[in-house]
């Protein structure tokens, strides 16, 4: 998957000069990109010490946090956007965390590897193997990914949780945003990107 195209697509959704919280920020690549291209300020939350050092080396403020404990140290509506790239599948309570994202942020942005992608389906249908998208060299038993989902699964969760999807886009296996992927996202989208907010009147 192309990290750069994902960063660029997220960046298009973010207004300049806003405040962003990045959950599971890794080495701070997204926040650096947003800082440099959008003048965004914010924090990354990360659990891995090597990644934290990576953020520090880039001058990205990062706060060591276990996302499974929620975002209790953050006040409601304290960020314009709460972003979570390729992390939803690794948290213990995705539904709760989505609610937390929309408590702390006015809008949420989430990206994940779509398990409905045709290659994942082939993996299961033809080889009878569990797909382990996104984890080079990892197997089902040692992958941090415990809540893999498809495009359809995610949208169903949003409906049930009273979340309005504002925008969505998909990256196909050519690492580009393609019309085809938009027409059949659950089959052709390798990475799904969503921007969403709490539905009016909905109370998470």
């Amino acid at each position: 998957m192309s990290v750069r195209s994902e960063l660029a697509l997220i960046s298009e959704w973010i207004r300049p000069g806003t405040r962003v919280l990045d959950l599971g920020c890794g080495e701070g690549l997204l926040l650096r990109y947003l800082r440099d291209t959008r003048g965004v300020i914010g924090y990354g939350l990360e659990i891995d010490p090597d990644n934290i050092r990576g953020c520090v080396e880039k001058g990205i403020p990062v706060i060591q946090t276990n996302l499974d404990e929620g975002l209790k140290d953050f006040d409601p509506d304290s960020f314009d956007y709460v972003v979570m790239t390729q992390t939803l599948q690794a948290v213990r309570y995705p539904e709760h965390l989505l609610a937390e994202i929309l408590r702390v942020g006015r809008e949420g942005i989430v990206t994940f590897s779509n398990m409905g992608h045709w290659r994942c389906r082939m993996e299961l249908a033809l080889r009878g193997r569990m797909p382990v998208s996104g984890d080079a060299g990892l197997d089902w038993y040692n992958s941090p990914n415990i809540h893999l989902c498809t495009v359809r699964d995610f949208e169903r969760l949003c409906t049930n949780a009273g979340i309005d999807i504002l925008e969505r886009t998909f990256i196909d296996d050519g690492h580009r945003r393609r019309t085809a992927a938009s027409l059949l996202p659950n089959l052709l989208g390798e990475v799904a990107l969503y921007r969403f907010k709490q539905a009016a009147g909905a109370d998470s």
Binding site: C55, V56, P61, F74
Partner: peptide, 9 residues
């Protein structure tokens, strides 16, 4: 963080 200060922890 409540005061939007730059902090790494």
């Amino acid at each position: 963080q409540d005061g939007n200060k730059r902090v790494t922890y």
